[in-house]
Write a protein that binds this DNA or RNA. Structure first.
Lengths: 329, 329
DNA sequence: CCGATTTGTGTAAACGTGTACACAGAGTGA
DNA sequence: TCACTCTGTGTACACGTTTACACAAATCGG
């Protein structure tokens, strides 16, 4: 138990070869005799030898580690995409290091720590870190930013998201149903993602001579959606609430239903954003501005692969959202 | 942009000292003059130098990486605990590597890959990997297994969970309400965790001269909870369903309500397990056998710290569950 | 059968740190 | 002033790989 790990030099002695040959036995295409390789692999199995990835990384200048900067893993709105990405990375023998930066005062400190590990790629999902910070800290790595606005830069690849058309569809339907008094329930105060999402809906309203009457700020959680909706509905007579994400929308719906006895979509329309699996659960059946998560992660993986092959400079991709129609709007 | 990272030797030249002194400037307690340290840190900031953690790990035999073996991060039932743990690790300057092993054919391969990175600690949350496999693969690391049965071993620390008392409370209440025909909706076919959880409830039933009339197998997801509950309720006349986790319980409740028009707790009692935040949402208000997640993660962190300090041998901790009473049973 | 190429292997030097050891100078007590 | 400790720094090696280079043996074409 708990024995020291065997090293390539020791294994070399055991197999009667040099440590270089050990290394070659584990490199798929290198000049080595088949007999030697087989013998070495067999001895290696016997002694439980595996090349030390840390040493290899130091030598290769290539760690096969990927930093994932996210707000939270506990929030279903993010976790689904993260899960997809983690699977895809693992299939490519890349190991994800999760940097969970919400509630954590010194996110920058944390990112600096990760950059110290010579990660090969950085994927920034969080809107809590500015793109400039990411570029500064990972200046050696060319981060892939998942932003919501197309950004031009020679050191960052980005995937931006356009939900304006889908927002317009949603507003059209709600206005068509006779609603006129809209509120926006933001995910967070300072986030540029939130500002952009709000703009999609604000523009769609403006096109019809309307505007948001009220606004509130939460923190992307159910509880904040519930609490802010209660306060919102008490202080103004809105009949439609657009929420920053699906979880908050569920909170807002519960608040409207439980505390004020209002039903969707009759009394009040409620709209989420993200299109997570939970939105489609029978008890929720949320109308939501949704993103194709698989296509989205496909795009991220594609960028990582280009980046890996050093094929070309940074790319900028835009994806459009669609609507999931439920019974809440 | 994308400049090469500066090395300690180069910085040494720039600061007019030897590379050893650079290293000392970054080690909190080492013999170095204050003036020298300040000068070095200032020059380091200027050139963006940070010690290479990979090289340091190789030298130290200590990577500060922690492997987290989990089933899924997308499933809220696990994500909450994972999130807590990730925060606690980060606060200790430990970086988590997530190994997501559900849906992934070769989990062992994945674990072997991670072990190659000389992780300092391993936390196994997943019931999909056998403890023996974990010990074999991470024989150099002493994994911390989060099991549900107390296990004796000199190479593994473990935290086990006992929900028998809480299960008894729940069954007492349901039986007291006049229900007699119970079904168990398993999370997964082969999991020993699932078997143990089921046993808690089976024992509580047996004490009252009852037994499970029916059983079904899902995969811990909402959809499987929904589908299996529909089939279960069609083929037998059960009036209480104990589910493998909270998400499945929500699915089962939706199925009962939507497809068969049955309400909880009147027509049918539904019980979850885990006690995730979502169980307390107004729209769910689930009765569930719940674990104190904070205390649980405290225990994990405590084990990691003992393990880090090499204080003593492996430990075995047992935690007891409590009941969250909702309106579904 | 000989020169040219290919194949298989060993030697040695990197990769970027941390640290044991040596050592010079400063301080200290008698 | 001297023997001694303490402080600050440099030198050199170890950590476990990969790989450029060298070289012997094997293969090959004519």
């Amino acid at each position: 138990m708990n024995k020291k790990r065997i090293t390539s030099k020791e294994l070399a002695k055991l197999a009667g070869v040099s440590s270089a040959t050990i290394s070659r036995a584990f490199s798929p295409d290198s000049r080595i005799g088949n007999a030697t390789r087989d013998r070495i692999l067999s001895v290696a199995r016997e002694y439980g030898y595996q090349p030390n990835a840390i040493a290899r990384s130091l030598n290769n200048q290539r760690s096969r580690l990927v930093a994932l900067v996210v707000n939270a893993i506990g929030n279903p709105c993010e976790a689904e995409e993260q899960q997809l990405l983690v699977h895809r990375l693992q299939a490519r023998q890349l190991l994800p290091i999760i940097l969970c930066c919400a509630d954590h005062a010194d996110r920058l400190q944390l990112m600096r720590l990760a950059s110290t590990y010579q990660v090969d790629h950085v994927v920034v999902f969080s809107d809590m870190v500015s793109m400039q910070d990411a570029v500064d800290i990972f200046h050696t790595t060319k981060p892939i930013i998942v932003s919501f606005e197309p950004l031009a830069s020679d050191s960052v690849s980005s995937i931006s998201i356009d939900g304006s058309a889908a927002a317009d569809e949603i507003i059209a339907k709600i206005v068509g149903d006779g609603k006129t008094r809209f509120a926006y329930l933001s995910g967070t105060q300072s986030s540029w993602i939130d500002k952009l999402r709000r703009k999609w809906f604000a523009d769609a309203l403006a096109k019809r001579g309307l505007a948001f009457e009220a606004q509130a700020f939460g923190d992307y959680t159910y509880d904040s959606g519930f609490k802010e909706a209660v306060m919102l509905l008490h202080r103004s007579k809105v009949d439609a609430i657009i929420c920053g994400n699906d979880v908050m929308a569920i909170g807002a719906r519960d608040a409207a239903r439980r505390i004020l006895g209002k039903n969707t979509p009759g009394d009040i329309a409620i709209v989420g954003q993200d299109g997570i699996a939970m939105a489609a659960w029978d008890c929720n059946d949320l109308t939501t501005l949704s993103l194709d998560h698989v296509a989205f992660i496909d795009a991220v993986v594609d960028l990582i692969e280009r980046h890996d092959a050093e094929l070309d400079g940074p790319h900028s991709i835009t994806m459009t959202c669609s609507v999931r129609w439920g019974s809440t709007a």
